[in-house]
Design a protein around this nucleic acid. Structure first.
Lengths: 150, 150
DNA sequence: TTTAGATCAAGAACTATTCTAAATAGGGTA
DNA sequence: TACCCTATTTAGAATAGTTCTTGATCTAAA
C-alpha cells in the first residue's frame, strides 16, 4: 500500500468536516502525519515536525488535533503496550507489527477478501465499531532481524 | 469458557517457576487475578483485593509481580487504548471486546480450528511471538446494550 | 461590526507506571 | 543452626505521557 487518496474534505484549508473546522493547525498535524507515511509517529514526534511548518504550534494543540482527527475518523490512534500512542493516516483495515529486533512498527494488510473479525466467535447481536490488532515479534525483513531468528 | 486448569507449577506456594520464586506476594497477586475471573482488573484493582489477603503488600509489589508473571507467561497484560493496563489469567488465544455501552471487557474466543493470524498477510520470515486483538463496540448482551444498537 | 462559540497556547495538573534505596526474606552452604 | 548471598519487597520519589485550565485569538454568521 504505497499511495492513497482521502475521500474526506480535509486537504483544503479551513473547510468543515463533520461540523468541525479544518484549521491551519489541524491541517499541519494531518499533513505531517501523512508525510511521515508508514512511520507511525508519536505525538511528540509529530510535534517536532509540525513546529517546523508552524513554529507557534504547541504540544497541547497537537494532542487536541490528534484527538479531533481521530474522532472524525480521519486518522487512527495505534496503541502498542503502554508505550506512547502512535498515529497513523492509513485508514484501510490493517494490523500493526512491532519488531522487537529493529523496533519499528509495520502495517500488516488483510489478505485478499479476508475479514478481520472472521476468525473470532463474536456474540450474536454484537457490533464492532473499531478493531486494533497488534503483533509483536521479529519482522525478518532486515538482515539483522533475519539473523535474530533462532 | 468457564473453567480452566493451569498446567504451570504456580498454585503451590514458594515453588520455583522458570528460575523465579513463587513468593507469597506473587501467589496472592496470581490468586486475586484468577479469582476475578473474566473481569480484567487493573493493577490498582488487583491491589485492593490483594491487600485484603495480605495487608502488607504494596502497589509497587503488585506491579512487580504482574510484570514477573507476565514475563513468565503465566498471565497476560491487556492494553486497550491508553487506559490503565488490565491483566488476564486466560492464556488461551483470545481477543478482547470493550463495550462502549456497558464499559465491560469481554473475552472473545477464536472460532474452532481458526488461527488468529490467518487473515493477515504477514511478511515471509516474520515470527509472531504475541498478538493482541482489541475490539470496541456494542456487545449486545445486556438489555441496555441491545437497545443501544441503531 | 458585533457576537458567540470554537480553537489555540502555555503551563499546571494528573495518572499510571517505573525507579531508587533501604529493609527483608529465603535458599544454599559451612 | 548460623551465615551469606541474592532475589524480592516496601515506601516514596520520580518520570512520561497525556489531559485540563485559563485566558487569548480566531472564525463564521448575524
Amino acid at each position: 500500500m504505497a499511495e492513497k487518496t482521502l475521500d474526506i474534505p480535509i486537504s483544503t484549508t479551513a473547510e468543515d468536516f463533520g461540523g468541525l473546522r479544518m484549521t491551519k493547525q489541524r491541517q499541519v498535524v494531518y499533513d505531517v502525519l501523512a508525510a511521515l507515511g508508514r512511520e507511525h509517529p508519536t505525538a511528540a514526534e509529530i510535534f517536532v515536525d509540525a513546529k517546523e511548518r508552524m513554529p507557534s504550534i504547541s504540544l497541547a494543540t497537537v494532542y487536541n488535533c490528534l484527538e479531533t482527527l481521530t474522532g472524525a475518523g480521519v486518522i487512527r490512534q495505534v496503541c502498542i503496550d503502554r508505550a506512547a500512542a502512535r498515529y497513523c493516516a492509513n485508514l484501510t483495515p490493517h494490523a500493526h507489527f512491532y519488531c522487537d529486533c529493529c523496533e519499528k512498527v509495520f502495517d500488516i494488510e488483510l489478505k485478499d477478501s479476508a475479514e478481520a473479525t472472521s476468525v473470532w466467535s463474536l456474540p450474536k447481536g454484537s457490533k464492532v465499531t473499531e478493531m486494533q490488532v497488534a503483533m509483536r515479534g521479529i519482522c525478518g525483513l532486515c538482515p539483522r532481524c533475519r539473523s535474530e531468528e533462532s
